[in-house]
Design a protein around this nucleic acid. Sequence first.
DNA 1: ATACATTATGGGTAGTTGTGGGTAATTATA
DNA 2: TATAATTACCCACAACTACCCATAATGTAT
Lengths: 154, 154
Amino acid sequence: MTINKNTFTGEYSYSIDTKGRINIPAKFRNDLANDNEKSFVITKGMDSCVYAYPAIVWQSIENELKKLSSLSNVNRSFVRNTVRYASMVKYDKQGRIAITPNLINYANLNKEALIIGMVNKIEIWNPDLLEKVDNLSQKIDSSQIDELANKIIL
Amino acid sequence: MTINKNTFTGEYSYSIDTKGRINIPAKFRNDLANDNEKSFVITKGMDSCVYAYPAIVWQSIENELKKLSSLSNVNRSFVRNTVRYASMVKYDKQGRIAITPNLINYANLNKEALIIGMVNKIEIWNPDLLEKVDNLSQKIDSSQIDELANKIIL
DNA sequence: ATACATTATGGGTAGTTGTGGGTAATTATA
DNA sequence: TATAATTACCCACAACTACCCATAATGTAT
């Protein structure tokens, strides 16, 4: 039992089976508020990973997206790309969700997968890819990271 | 009973058992405010040690992180690095927490471990490592200490 | 000093979790 | 419509974890 619902932290290593299923860590399932009815919305992440939002959190994101005027070119393609590959999935009795082939392909997922709690959402990664992306962004943005660190960490 | 809750000082030597469990010093358990529900959040420390924050202290960190939009590259990697190895742990009837294999590995923890109160958080160290890091930092010239002296009155 | 309470540490056990695979129902395809 | 492919749901089981109890060491009060 944690204090904050729909809030995820930590890194877990899980395997994706031949049917494209992956386990949602027991801890995350416990952190998921009941009104989500065991459902996440999975979609393309900003980096080459899969995002999984609690169903009701996704709903509020949809509401935000509705506010973006479609007159703007940028808005249109942004909305299209975020929504296009989104699908609601419910975890089964064993706690697994099925990842769509689209997303498996996009995130380059093989047998091994890393699941990372990102506070309000979950990321599913190919471990090798994550390492690359991580190294890269740390080199580029270290000064900005330090700036953030000064604001947030005690 | 101390005056300030969620405030830790002092050094203690404890052993980590074969299950990865370590005792939270009785004094620290008493210093932990009740609304933490006997829970800490453990994560990677700045040096090669494990940090343990009182759960509610960590919660306020999480709330800050939630405000950062994932559209920014810098924000993403900052959030990821901050929460990636964080997990909430509750101490059992004997007053022990279980340290995740990830963190045991990162901090090079064996049987012996040093627990140090660091005011708003706790550090868990491999004693040998701490000694090395400590020797290193003692070589830092005293001018920097003088600088600190301007900020804090002892 | 003695009795009692608390603390630190080890280990056992029942229940949970992660993983594979099977089968029936549903959907797609020819 | 018949058949193939996909999906949803079920069971099995090894590994792990949470929870409980035991015991020795330490601390505390009378």
